[in-house]
Every structure is written in structure tokens, then in C-alpha cells.
Design a protein around this nucleic acid. Structure first.
Lengths: 186, 186
DNA sequence: CTTGAAATGTAGTGATTACTACAAATTAAT
DNA sequence: ATTAATTTGTAGTAATCACTACATTTCAAG
């Protein structure tokens, strides 16, 4: 590998860590430089502009998240999945990624690229992840159920971020009640 | 009413309209002044600081939204409510408010006050609104069902904003299927 | 009419930001 | 060793932003 490319990756990695610990918008060029142990001047040498850095950083973080989600042996049917999702939101290892996801969705709507592309990538990975774990009951439409789990998770994430956790739990119970009443475990 | 107070309200009203048409973060003091037909200097005369303006503006918009939601005669059971919510998200009259709501949730988590308070107010109003319209089926827990509708709506709003509309529709169908299978209309 | 207060305009401050011009130092090639 | 290219530092630019000092006009009260 290029020495140039190597430095780019080093910097990207360090800035990614700092970004996960704070937020995208907090990361000015100076903070990025501090996190990477260099100067803003140097970052401009190795990257075209700030957006170039952000793209590298967020792409790297997305990949980390995708790797983090991989759990080849995990299989859950609907109710268990819902409970699993609700609990995952509070996982300290997951939380920084959710914070960033939350931020990126907003940036995607207000700034467009590169955030929209990254949002799409992560969204698709999440979709795949659900499909990989979800064991549909009976003759359910997997795509629809997956979409429901996706939308529900998004909702939970928002509620969590705006501090309405009681409602998260209530919603989880309601969702489960909706299925349990009707689908005796077979 | 005070002439002073009157001007404050006039300005607030005009700035609120402009804010709905664009976004909170787009509204610099200069843009606010332009929208109000005055100068930034004048705004500082009638308001303590920018946050003072934003609070007035967002409070006013919240109230508008709350009024907009009032539909005294509307009563819906679960399935119809879900469909109603999904369709409401595309309503041009509602959309600007959803955009702002989306933005405020983000600001609430990144800037704190006054956005957290406003988020809470709107959230509670939305909760009340659901409860006022929702006709629970059988002996359901209304609070839980309300929370579910809230969370689900949040999820739909996010999906909508990040351009995953097919998944909105799929999720709606899945949600409805979840109840229809099991709860034959009685 | 005089005087004091309220309303408004002009211009500017200081902070932050992404980004750059220029030059010096370091490294690599011949 | 000389030259050329790469790497780094210093300093600064231009834009944007919330906010202010100061002066002037407008207005109202006695």
C-alpha cells in the first residue's frame, strides 16, 4: 500500500473514533486534526476537502457497524426480535452508532450528499441483518415484516433520543400483545 | 396589548411562516429580519437574543400544529388509524410541520433547551391527539397502543425523510396484517 | 417647546469556520 | 552533492454568525 494511502487510513481511523465519541457536527477540521495527531493543514494535504474526510470516516464507521451487527447463529422470531431490538438500543457498544445514525439521517435530509448515500448503505445493511436473523412465523410476508421491524426500530431510536423511554417500553409491549393474542406459539 | 408585545407577536408570526417554509437552522438573524420586514438590529431590540426569538417562534408553531390536529369528530380503530397516519405524512398541509418536528428532535438531542421542552410539549399533544381519536378494540391497554402508534409514526416519519417510502407502505401493511389475521372485525 | 425616552440605522466586533498562499524543511533521485 | 519533489509549518483570508456601541431620529409628556 501507498504511504500516502496508509496515512489517509490512519487519519481516517483516528478521526472515526473521535467522531463516534462525540458527533459529526462537533468535528471541525481542527478537532479532526487533533484527533489524528496532526494539523488541519496536513489533513488538507491528504484529503481533498472536509467532505472527503467525512466520507472516508463515515464509510469506515458504517463498515464497523455492519461488522458489529454480524451474528451468524442468531435466529429470532417476531416477539423475541422485538425485545432484542429494544434492548439493543441501550447497549453501550451499539449506542454511539445509533447516535451517529440519528445524526446522519438528519444530515441526509438537510445536506444531501454524501450523507444520503451513506444512509442508504446503512439502511440496506440493516435490512439484510434483519432478514438474516428473523424467522418468520407461518406464511408471513418477510419483506413486509422486515419493513415493520425497521420502521419500529427507527421509531424506538427516536423515542429513545428524545427521552421518552416509558413509551418505548409501552410500544414494545403493545407490539408483542398484537401478535401474542393471535398467534399461539405452535 | 402593549405595542411592544404586539410587535413581538407580529415578528414572531412572520418568522414562523418563513421557518416553516425552510428550516430552523436556515434562519439566521438576517433571514429572520428579512422575513419580518425589519433589521436584525430591531429583532435584538424586541427580543433578548436569538434563542428568545426561536422559543417564541417554535412555541407559536407548536400551537398551530396542535390546532391543526384537532378533529373533534374523528374516531378510528387501529387499522384505520394506521392507514390514516401513513396518509397524513404525505399531506402537504402537515408536511412542513413534520419537517420541523424532525429537525427539532435532532436539535433537542444536540442543543438541549429550548428544544427539549418544545419536543416534550409537542410529544404530549400528539399523545393526547391519538387518545382522542383512537377507538381501542376490546380490552386493549390504551396507553400501550397509543405508545405503539406514536413510535410507529415516528418510524414512518424517519423512513419518509430518508426516502424509503416503499418500506413505509410495507410496514403499514405488515402492521395491519398483524391485527387483521387475529381480530376479525366484530 | 423642551426634555427625556423609545425606536431605528450604521457600522463594526470578535468568534468560528473551511480553506490557502507561501515558504521552509525534509526526503528521494541522479 | 545537487536538484527536484514531497511533506510540513506559519500565517492569513474570506465568509458567516450572533451580537453591540454609538449615533441619530422619532415620539411622547409636561
Amino acid at each position: 500500500m501507498d504511504k500516502f494511502e496508509q496515512k489517509r487510513q490512519d487519519y481516517t481511523h483516528h478521526i472515526a473514533k473521535a467522531t463516534l465519541a462525540s458527533s459529526i457536527k462537533e468535528m471541525s477540521l481542527k478537532k479532526m486534526a487533533a484527533a489524528a495527531g496532526t494539523s488541519d493543514r496536513m489533513l488538507m494535504h491528504y484529503f481533498k476537502d472536509k467532505q472527503d474526510i467525512e466520507t472516508a470516516v463515515l464509510t469506515s464507521i458504517s463498515q464497523e457497524l455492519i461488522d458489529l451487527l454480524q451474528q451468524p447463529d442468531l435466529k429470532l422470531e417476531f416477539t423475541a426480535f422485538v425485545r432484542f431490538l429494544r434492548q439493543a438500543i441501550d447497549e453501550p457498544r451499539i449506542k454511539p452508532y445509533l447516535n451517529l445514525w440519528f445524526e446522519i439521517t438528519h444530515l441526509a435530509t438537510s445536506q444531501g450528499e454524501p450523507y444520503t448515500s451513506i444512509t442508504r448503505t446503512i439502511g440496506e445493511s440493516f435490512d439484510d441483518w434483519i432478514k438474516q436473523i428473523y424467522v418468520p412465523t407461518e406464511g408471513e410476508d418477510v419483506d413486509q415484516q422486515t419493513a415493520l421491524l425497521f420502521v419500529f426500530t427507527e421509531g424506538l431510536v427516536v423515542m429513545n433520543k428524545i427521552g421518552l423511554e416509558e413509551r418505548m417500553d409501552a410500544a414494545v409491549e403493545a407490539m408483542i400483545a398484537l401478535t401474542k393474542d393471535n398467534r399461539p406459539r405452535n
